[in-house]
């Protein structure tokens, strides 16, 4: 079972696909879930504390907005422990976040490429045919990963 990082990191479709093919998805909802289920909520609603934001300094300097560093403190460790990754680009219309978050996304895909792990890069499908091909490529990629 390989640990597969998915991008966008909040993609439930990618999370589900990775799981269906017997691998461990590394995605943001899981990390946020852990935070929310913490017995002590220090910093509602997501329990990202100032300490987490400081951890984000590993990836970005202090002048990078705190929200970006907070996101990186959750996403960065996932990228670090990934054995493989799936990156889906051009999902602007469905993505969310501010300008800083948009920049984080660009940075995260760069961090993934720096890892030199198997990476499948795809464009978001625009019609049914493309969607079928999209899933097929993901399936082939996941099956090619060593169990």
């Amino acid at each position: 079972m390989a640990r597969v990082f998915v991008f966008p990191p909040n993609s439930l479709i990618l999370h589900d696909l990775v799981e269906r093919f017997g691998h461990e998805p590394l995605s943001l909802p899981k990390e946020v879930g852990k935070k929310v289920r913490d017995p002590e909520i220090d910093s509602p609603p997501m329990n990202v504390t100032p300490e987490d934001v400081k951890k984000g300094l590993k990836y970005a300097a202090v002048e990078v907005p705190s929200g970006v560093r907070g996101r990186l403190s959750l996403i960065g460790p996932l990228v670090e422990k990934a054995d493989a990754a799936i990156i889906v680009e051009e999902v602007q219309d469905l993505a969310f976040g501010c300008m800083g978050c948009d920049r984080t996304n660009k940075f995260v895909t760069y961090l993934v490429r720096q890892r030199n792990i198997p990476v499948l890069e795809l464009k978001y499908p625009e019609d049914e045919e493309e969607a079928k091909e999209f899933v097929r490529e993901i399936k082939d990629f996941l099956e090619s990963l060593e169990g």
Partner: peptide, 13 residues
């Protein structure tokens, strides 16, 4: 520029 998020990220990389 100071306080540019993407600037700081790119500068470092």
């Amino acid at each position: 520029c100071f306080r540019c998020a993407e600037g700081a990220l790119v500068r470092n990389e």
